[in-house]
């Protein structure tokens, strides 16, 4: 109870943090007209793939929680492992996106679009990384056998955080990738 409340509060606070970064991004890329560079320099297809990975990691985590409640440790480990792997794959995808941008000289200091893009996605990536570290610790605990009390709030608390990270990405994905593509696609 305490832990879940705490995590909810922290997540709420983090949401406002991301909102501020997101508003900055919107301000710099959508105003006064949508920066046409956004759609042309970002790779929607590849990122969609990695987005699916990240979002499905929420599903695997949900399965992990279910197995945990039912006391099935083996399944729990498997689902947790899946979640961690999917998270890592997402980070790798983000890394490849960054490296392709950097190889085209689109660095942080290139302009307001890259500045706000890297800050927003970078901070999200940082949160994914923190999530992966925490999940790995939880996974390690399951192997140690320290996670056998089905009433423990540990897993649900981590879950709130992990789902939050996914939701943030969903929003970021829509605003940074999908919407510009869609808008510039229709108006040449």
């Amino acid at each position: 109870m305490e832990q879940k409340t705490l995590i909810k509060l922290v997540v709420g606070s983090e949401a406002i943090f991301f909102l501020a970064l997101l508003m900055a991004f919107v301000y710099f890329t959508y105003v006064p007209v949508l920066n046409p560079r956004v759609a042309s320099s970002l790779d929607l297809n590849r990122t969609s793939l990695f987005t699916v990975m990240l979002l499905s990691s929420s599903v695997t985590f949900w399965r992990a929680e279910v197995s945990f409640r039912r006391g099935r440790t083996k399944q729990l480990r498997l689902w947790l492992l899946c979640t961690v792997v999917l998270g890592v794959v997402f980070l790798v995808g983000q890394g490849s996106e960054y490296s392709s941008l950097l190889s085209r000289q689109l660095t942080v200091s290139k302009g307001t679009f890259t500045t706000s893009f890297f800050t927003l996605t970078g901070f999200h990536g940082l949160h994914v990384l923190i999530g992966i570290v925490v999940l790995s610790i939880v996974l390690y605990l399951t192997f140690l056998g320290d996670l056998d009390d089905p009433d423990s709030a540990l897993l649900p608390s981590v879950g709130i955080y992990w789902h939050f990270v996914d939701v943030v990405w969903a929003v970021v994905f829509v605003i940074v990738y999908v919407l510009p593509h869609f808008l510039t696609g229709h108006t040449p």
Partner: peptide, 11 residues
């Protein structure tokens, strides 16, 4: 507020 802000500051 967010929506209002967007409309207010939208070009």
């Amino acid at each position: 507020s967010l929506l209002g802000m967007l409309i207010t500051f939208a070009p």
